[in-house]
Design a protein around this nucleic acid. Structure first.
Lengths: 220, 220
DNA sequence: ATATAATTTTAGACAAAGCTAAAAAATTGT
DNA sequence: ACAATTTTTTAGCTTTGTCTAAAATTATAT
């Protein structure tokens, strides 16, 4: 597989991740920052290798083979992100560009040993799940605190509003990425939420609750 | 710089490393496993970018700019090799192929942080020196024990004879890659050598001495 | 010294991945 | 329903890095 083919496979995967229908040529072109005509050319090549299902003018979807290729690339990307954050002290928002390059390194032994070195992590620093060797992964969900019912538990993995003021607020309240929270109570009246943290429980306003993402583990 | 350009620069560097003259087109073609005509084409492009000095039919040599590019690639390659061996437990003879890929990853921050993570190593697992950011490195020498005078000291970095029998012998005598040895005495009569190891001093036969490489540190 | 051999360069072609412009098919609006 | 618009594909061209075959240059050997 060439670098370019891998990038297309990954783009198609991400575009069909949620609406599992077939993906439009234009959508791929936009994602890949290229022209629709180039996309058509590449799709033909991928269809030739039976990595995608393709019928003229009907859009494209990954074949099972293509899906496994996509998941293996995503596995590599996310493991490298964990490495960059956990071992090299990158911050979680700097790692994507570098991981985009590292994900194309070809060596099964490397990925196995990296996985072991990192302690077989289940999620990347953004809270996205890491597929195993066979492409199996727990489709965990990333949700705003405001969208969750009482009793939910998860790891804080991101913010919606990355303004300095908001980040400062989090710091002051000892809320950091990686912390585990549980929703204790939701106040009907103003939408404020009481959550348990390591250092006890705190109440956060609705505004805060709509800006903090939790990665929900073990959701069925 | 494209991947291919980087590979050519590296090849030219290695070919001119010892005999510092200009390098022949054919030699590059052999090294790169390609045809001389392809080499000529690429050399022209590199000359265009003033990475090499080139006159038709007269061979090629790296410009100062080209030399720095080469050293930056070599720095990356060797740091990754240290990572693979020290952190991921690859054995020192498995790392080259993977490092050939990793050396092309473009991110200064990544290399700085990797360097720090590894404790700013000075040599790679084969005993070859790691250039610093500015391309400066101690041109250390790798020599057989049999070639060294009494008093020399160095790190065991390789074997000439990699037969199972020889490796078994080393194991039995508690000689491992990475160990530091000092030459205590050379027996004129049979060429056997007494060396100090962590666990005391041992005498090794001439045959052994001609099969073990030491990386000599601080040689002027 | 000069014919022969080896090396290097040129010329022309090809595959990969992209582009532009134009044609074909699908979708939408009235 | 069908004209207008949008989407997708095709056709032909470009660039990068490669190749083969042939020409040019340099080296070698008698």
């Amino acid at each position: 597989m060439t670098l370019s083919e891998e990038d297309y496979i990954k783009a198609i995967y991400h575009l069909s991740e949620f609406n599992s229908k077939s993906v439009a040529t234009n959508a791929i072109a936009e994602q890949m920052k290229t022209k629709p005509s180039s996309v058509t050319d590449m799709i033909k090549k991928l269809a030739e290798k039976s990595l995608v299902n393709y019928k003229k003018y009907q859009g494209v979807s990954l074949s099972e083979k293509g899906r496994l290729v996509a998941l293996s690339i995503i596995r590599k990307h996310r493991l490298w992100e964990v490495f960059l954050v956990d071992k090299l002290n990158f911050s979680w928002d700097e790692v994507h560009v570098v991981a985009e390059q590292l994900e194309h390194i070809k060596s099964d032994a490397l990925i196995d040993k990296l996985d072991a070195h990192l302690g077989f992590p289940k999620v990347d620093p953004h809270g996205d799940p890491i597929p195993n060797k066979d492409g199996v992964f727990t489709k965990s969900v990333k949700k705003l605190i405001s969208e969750l019912p009482v009793g939910s538990q998860g790891v804080c993995v991101g913010v919606n509003d990355s303004s300095a003021a908001f980040l400062k607020f989090l710091d002051k309240n000892k809320i950091a990425l990686g912390d585990t929270f549980k929703i204790l109570e939701i106040e009907e009246f103003d939408g404020s939420v009481t959550i348990s943290t390591r250092s006890g429980s705190i109440r956060i306003s609705k505004q805060i609750a709509t800006n903090l993402f939790l990665e929900i583990v073990d959701e069925e």
